[in-house]
């Protein structure tokens, strides 16, 4: 949301656009990383990704909003529960469609619809809110930064760094990269593919759940809140290259910044049409994404 009334002068407007873009982009990165991880390893386009984000937010609604748990504890617990659900979903549903694009897509669409309707039955159709644990603003270069968004962004950066360390230095993280690059050779080297699928899907859902949990106090919470972040993750991953981790990071920040610029300069519908137009162009010109590697 651009704070047009507060920003003065052109530098302030530009600073505000950058701040808004980065604040939005970091959550896109978290969503897109999981999305691209699942695709890179399992070749499944996870249409249910937004619903895991939604479940994270619902977790915070219940734990923090209803039970009065500490906000940060609630975020972590909600994230872990979502991740655990992801592991179960992988084992029960997705294991049988690994590597098959079309059935994988349809399966995840089915899961997405079921999760939406379960939450709809449990919470009802009204959007709910939780109290903001942080309030107030601070300024940088004339741009207004709300404290709650700052906390979300700092948490997001911590999550991203932890994910990066996990992927680069842990045995499991290295094994995941190996499977993404060459599943056959990886399994010849003794990497157990089932474990990798379960952990990849679980970690991706953990990331989505944490993202949703962090954003819970900022937006309203409802059964369909995951659709837009899922779409954004899809767009980011297409821009960055399906299966590419650096691509997801770059693409997420790029999408955040683009949206913030477009939202400042045009009305929201034109901005939406323009962003779909950009996606069309990227897919047509660079079908493997800006940083994607050529498959096969």
């Amino acid at each position: 949301m651009p704070h047009k009334g507060v920003a003065r002068g052109e530098t302030a407007v530009i600073a505000q656009m950058i701040v808004n873009g980065l604040l939005g982009g970091l959550i896109y990165v978290i969503m897109a990383l999981g999305f691209t991880l699942i695709f890179g390893i399992m070749r499944i386009v996870n249409f249910a990704h937004g619903e895991f984000y939604m479940l994270g937010a619902v977790g915070v609604l219940v734990l923090f909003g209803n039970f009065g748990m500490n906000y940060f504890v609630a975020v972590v617990v909600a994230g872990l529960l979502t991740g655990a659900l992801g592991v179960i979903a992988e084992r029960v549903l997705f294991r049988s469609v690994v590597g098959e694009e079309m059935p994988g897509m349809i399966m995840s669409l089915g899961l997405s619809i079921i999760l939406q309707s379960v939450v709809l039955l449990a919470l009802g159709p009204e959007e709910q809110t939780v109290a903001r644990p942080f309030s107030g603003i601070w300024r940088i270069a004339g741009a207004v930064v709300p404290w709650d968004r700052t906390v979300v962004s700092i948490s997001a950066i911590i999550i991203l760094v932890a994910f990066y360390i996990f992927l680069k230095f842990s045995r499991l993280g290295l094994a995941m990269q190996a499977v993404a690059q060459d599943p056959t050779t990886a399994s010849l080297m003794g990497v157990e593919s089932g474990t990798i699928y379960a952990s990849a899907y679980g970690i991706a859902c953990l990331l989505a759940g944490l993202g949703g949990a962090l954003m819970a106090p900022i937006y309203t919470i409802g059964p369909y809140m995951g659709q837009s972040p899922m779409l954004k993750a899809f767009v980011v991953v297409v821009i960055g290259g399906l299966g590419s981790i650096p691509g997801a990071m770059l693409g997420g920040l790029l999408l955040g910044l683009t949206e913030s610029v477009l939202a400042t300069l045009m009305d929201s519908t034109t901005a939406l049409i323009a962003s779909f137009g950009v996606v069309l162009l990227v897919v047509l010109m660079r079908p493997n994404g800006l940083l994607g590697r050529t498959v096969r």
Binding site: L93, S96, G110, S112, I113, I114
Partner: peptide
């Protein structure tokens, strides 16, 4: 409507799992 969506979801998953 919410039950309809749930039935849709169960159908999609059921057919993908047992009768592709």
């Amino acid at each position: 409507r919410e039950y309809q969506l749930m039935i849709y979801g169960v159908c999609l998953i059921g057919f993908m799992k047992f009768a592709k």
